[in-house]
């Protein structure tokens, strides 16, 4: 292990390390802690400039309830759910199919098609913005949850296919070969043999895509306008305008928007990190 395990060093160093850990963490998360403290302060603290000291009262429940009752936050929140969940299902499903097609068959276009998905996945959003918005307006999908779901699903399919194809490629090919020799149909090989084996990849992709889509701001701004279809990220910005200098409410709303991906991360940490770090260990 590198650096040298701290257990093997002198007692003084060990103690210093154990002290340094919480201090470093405190400094690292200071902005987050500060905004959390703000989110539980009463308005009077904000106005009197007591931003850093002990809160004069703990208004945790009041502030968070106020966000939901004084604004459209609940609608935004629900919209985010309606955008995120279908996107995860569609993009991961399509990627399972495409990833299988690109990994298992050695046809001439396998590599070019694979590279097309990778390249598309890295383009700047702005190069897609005008045509996608125009397409959505023309098809009546502008400012709808469906419009967002369709675009996100299509775009994320690129990343998911990249991931799935490499994952399936790493499976033992003899399994598929022997199934073919036994005369098992291609579709059945995919469904009964490969799909159960890619479950870890499906889990990793699902948490990643959930987080990406939940946190998306750009497309939420470009493809929606009204309250009825705005997801929480775009909604927060609207709230920011509505709650001018009511920092206790703005911070409560921001923290609330962060909760679902954070929960997702802590519940599925292993899969989340496996997904993000794919490729960090092998060239």
């Amino acid at each position: 292990m590198f650096p040298t395990p701290i257990e093997k060093t002198s007692g003084g160093l060990r103690l210093a390390y154990k002290l340094a850990l919480p201090i470093a963490l405190f400094l690292w998360l200071l902005p987050l802690l500060a905004i959390f403290m703000t989110s539980i302060r009463p308005a009077v603290d904000i106005n009197s400039g007591n931003m850093f000291g002990w809160p004069s009262a703990f208004n945790l429940v009041e502030n968070y309830v106020a966000v939901f009752t004084q604004s459209e936050a609940l609608t935004y929140f629900w919209n985010s759910v309606k955008v995120t969940i279908p996107t995860v299902i569609i993009s991961v499903s399509l990627a399972c199919l495409a990833g299988y097609g690109l990994a298992i068959y050695n046809f001439k276009f396998a590599l070019p098609l694979f590279f097309l998905f990778i390249a598309g996945n890295f383009v700047p959003f702005q190069i897609l913005m005008v045509p996608v918005r125009d397409l959505s307006v023309k098809t009546g999908l502008y400012d709808t949850v469906t419009g967002l779901v369709l675009f996100h699903s299509a775009f994320q399919t690129g990343f998911c296919t990249l991931f799935m194809r490499n994952f399936i490629r790493a499976l033992p090919y003899e399994l598929i070969e022997s199934a073919r020799i036994e005369g098992v149909k291609e579709w059945r090989i995919f469904w009964h043999l490969v799909l159960p084996l890619v479950r870890p990849a499906v889990a990793a992709l699902s948490v990643l895509i959930f987080t990406f889509i939940w946190n998306d701001f750009f497309w939420a701004t470009v493809l929606t306008q009204g309250e009825a279809s705005k997801p929480i990220t775009a909604g927060i910005r609207a709230l920011n305008g509505q709650f001018v200098s009511q920092w206790h409410l703005v911070s409560a709303a921001s923290l609330m928007a962060a909760i679902p991906p954070v929960l997702m991360f802590f519940a599925m940490q292993k899969h989340f990190i496996a997904g993000l770090t794919l490729g960090a260990t092998k060239g």
């Binding site: 998360l29 987050l32 905004i35 987080t211 701001f217 921001s254 954070v262 997702m264």
Partner: peptide, 13 residues
């Protein structure tokens, strides 16, 4: 942790 939070929230913070 900071990576999991939306950039919108990071920006507001």
């Amino acid at each position: 942790f900071p990576f999991v939070i939306s950039q919108v929230v990071v920006g507001l913070i």
